[in-house]
Design a protein around this nucleic acid. Sequence first.
DNA 1: CGTTCATGCGCC
DNA 2: GTTCTGT
DNA 3: ACAGAACGCGCATGAACG
Length: 1153
Amino acid sequence: MRTEPNLLEFIGADAVFLDTTYCNPKFTFPSQEESLDYVVNTIKWVKEESGAAGEPMLCLIATYVVGKERILLEVARRCGCKIHVDSRKMEILTVLGIGGENGIFTEDAAATDVHVTGWNILGETWPYFRPNFVKMKEIMLERGYNKAVGFVPTGWMYETKKEGFAVRAKDSLEIHLVPYSEHSSYDELRDYVKFLHPKWVIPTVGLEGGKLDGKEAFALQKHFAGLVDETANKQEFLMAFHRRSTNSTLDPEDAVTRLSQQEGKVQEGEEATLLPAISSAFEQSDGFPEKITMEMKKELSDFLPSWVSQDLILDLLIKSGGDVVQAATDFFEKERDFFEEANVSNSETPKSEIDLTFDNGSSADAGSQQEVPLFSQKPMDHSGKLLNLNAMKMKSNLSKRERKRGSKSSDKPKKKGRSTASKPSTESSGRKQSTITNYFARTTTAASKSDTSDKVTVDANQNNVKNGDQFTDVVESEKQSVSQLLQIVDGGMSRESAISLLEKAKGDVNVAVDIFYSKTDNSNVLENDKNIVTQNSENEMTDKSSNTGMLRNSSESTPKIPNLCVQSYVAQSDSVSISLPIENYLPIEHACWTAGQSAPYLHLARTFDLVEREKGKIKTTAILCNMFRSLLALSPDDVLPAVYLCTNKISPDHENIELNIGGSLVVSALEEALGSSKSKIHEMYKTYGDLGDVAQECRQNQMLLAPPRALSIRDVFSTLRKLSAISGSGSTGRRKVLVLHLIRSCREMEMKFLVRTLVRNLRIGVMMKTILPALAHSVVIDGKYSKSPVLSLEGIKLQLQELSTEVAEAYNVIPNLDLLIPSLLREGAAFSASSLEMVPGTPIPPMLARITNGLTQSLKLFHGRAFTCEYKYDGQRAQIHRSNDGSVQIFSRQMKESTSRFPDLVNMIKELCSIESSFILDAEVVGIDRKKGNKLMSFQELSSRERGSKHSSIAIQNIKVDICVFVFDIMFCNGQRLLNCPLRQRRKYIHDLFQEKPGHFELAQQLTVEADEASVDNSTTLDRMNTFFKMACQSSCEGIMLKTLDVDAGYSASKRCDSWLKVKRDYVEGLGDSLDLVPIGAWYGNGRKAGWFSPFLMACYNPEYEEFQSVCRVMSGFSDEFYKELLFICLRSLVKMSLKGEILFVSTLVYCF
DNA sequence: CGTTCATGCGCC
DNA sequence: GTTCTGT
DNA sequence: ACAGAACGCGCATGAACG
Ligand SMILES: Nc1ncnc2c1ncn2[C@@H]1O[C@H](COP(=O)(O)O)[C@@H](O)[C@H]1O
């Protein structure tokens, strides 16, 4: 039995670092399980025990990383802080008869309070073993431990949708990953890093001839020194370093309190915020020109009352530009406020509203500072370059919960004007914007003094909208006249003019036209007239505040209609009738237009609005079904454009027709159309998190000069197509004109969805999987009940189901609405999936694979079934089509045509595939280095290859990255679908029909396991697979794929399927790349992750520069709860430590997936 | 007319 | 691409 | 089960700038 660690040892410790390296199950020492257990128990123990004595910081240092020990030693040396590294592992290693004295820094360690081992690190070979943290995490979670496992991605990073307000890389930090497992020497690593980014090369790991020493790695930093640019972030690091070595006198408790309250803060800036723990301990500088020194802080601190927090002091200093006297003056001016704030924050009753003056000030400053470059004015104030504690908002879990409940209950009084509320009320905030909205909600509420008055307004609005609708519907004929008139005069007049003209002409278009043409000589007068008309109509309004704009406007400025008539008619057709149960919906009577007209976009917009709010899938389908029924009954030609608009597409994927419209252009169009400034829109965007909502909101508040012309579905769609066709010089301008046209024509909630369509983010929770069944249903119902009302759905249930399946299946294989919809409309309920012919030129949605954790697991899953193993190449998917005429096309995984990117591949196919027939192949394109013996290159390198575009192919002689294609499937050959052929046969076809050419055109490496061998108990099979897997990894592959050969072995287009499994190197314990890094900064997350740190900036210590240099960001791997817990506990103790003048370090296990 | 900037787009 | 959450 | 959100970067191209 091992002995439990000495409790006393830990109580005095500030941090516990567990080096868990030894618990790697790959390493087959006998008590592997036991050691894992041991660690887990220790963690548990530390948690429980030291939890009583205060929050412990508990980190896992679990990887083999050069410099880990150095970091610890450095920490210890610099700040003399007590860091106990669990020496028990020495025991374990000793117990196991290994390790102990092998530790690389044993001597150093012995001289300090830090005990570490570098067991086996200096060995000849680089043993890539690592702890089985997959299992560890599992166990930890299972047992409720709350500690960290962090993950770092190796190739890909994402950016949150920012619809026109994105800050591009050049403004943000440049961060690059240095996965090193692929590199056996330092030179290679260096080259790799250089390849990743020549300017910001920070080697973090040194591997020289198998020797692993951070010193050597960093010695080479000199070599790169000239290449490292002097960016702001570097200054930040320098600052961080500098501050780190300065003792702080901040009060730990205060900072901890503040930290615990900072959860709600959302930081929009792209600059990494230095972790408060680090930053607050150090001096602040105002965007770097002037430094605020420790002395200044101390001076001010001594001068002010003792309750004043260090954060406040910093803030004062920053605001005064480093002038201590000024800062003190400022303070006494607002002493009372500050005191109250401090009291509230200290008493741990975060009442949320407090503190707005102070906070508001600083965050607004920060905001405007970001805004400034847009308006080319240098910021005068220089506060908040470092956005940390001072910019935090008060919020607690409690108040969050309260607010949640609050918004729920206020939702209860049934669908109150979510989209019509004139201010972002609590209701409209929704789930999406947790903090900022609430913040705004609070301020607005405060401003309007009472909740109830707000609600009243909302109700009033709602009513008005209804009335407006009614008017809109009733005056349809008048509108038609107006449109007619406008058409005749061909835009020669505004709508107001037309309306007033019609009024004069008593509704007779011909008379109106006459009047118009009699007036044309002084048309200016008419245009002036417009303003008068509008003003008049505005004056007529008695209640402007509750007016919703154009609707009212139009109703007021059109001839009066008898009210009775209005109501009796409108009772049937309002904006929500489409949500009636299918049986009760009357496609013609409930529609908002009549046969022969083209369907108005409003029809769609209203549907979207309802669908967005309806979460149930069945109801959603019913609403959409009703929508389509009206279209089918009144204007079937609009079905296709409607389906496109519903699914946020404008063409089949493979046609590479793109809108080429982004947030920026939409924002600038909105600016112009709505008379809002960019900064205002940005502010609102931050509140709503959706450009569509912003536009809708602006529209709501806008007084329109003219009621817009009705947009039809056809108009919208054809305008979108027109947009996509624009190219060449002046294109941006021409696009904007079209966008403006669209935006200006929006009525009601059209704006919201039009804008969302433009930024291709419909967010109504509906995709092809909902739309197509809805359409299928409507087709069945339309066929059955086009003449009579729907009696019962029971009788046709089966038919509904069947057609849905047929349609979905057809689309799964041939995802081309241009073919599917006409065919469906033509054949009605008789439509079947085989109605569509498979032809090269239309890509088949690729089949996808299921993740598995390891070979054993996947073997289990395929027990008793024959299967094949294939290398999983690390490149890009390519579907190769050859038509009968011999032409070749390449499609990507997302079914975009990428032929122009691979002219060499096209040639290769033409040259090598001498067979006459047409075919469709599934393959992976991989970068290959022909000079280095056909060594496969990483995806990273492939991705830097030139791209080509819709109009231009890349030049074959310029190709920098050669490729090799690895074929693994065939779906179509010689006019025949092979989707239902078992893989064994498809595989045979490939072998029979194609000639390999090594390094150019190869078939995927394979290993066949027959049914009788497919058992976990068959060790030969497992061995073979293991070997195969290792070979795959050695051949620079990502892992292997396993595919059934006979059972369920068809090609399931577009499905993630259990008959294909993937086993990736990274999932398999012990084979991931890893780096051991120190978090030095973090960004605030967005959306769901708003309010806490999400991506962390990780760095590695460079002793030569004596600084931490950034390496990468760490993003995911924690569950949300994990995140919060980890961060709060960790940061809290970190702050504590740092404020005591000790350095804080977290070492995170970093995992590459 | 060449360079830099801004924006859209697609990839594992 | 992966992961987590919400319905 | 399914949908949606969160998570960047590098190339191509038009616009703006000298
Ligand atoms: N032999 C193979 N079979 C199937 N897919 C492969 C193969 N080799 C590489 N891949 C790629 O692996 C991808 C699926 O893995 P993942 O992206 O991890 O889900 C596919 O989209 C292919 O591009």
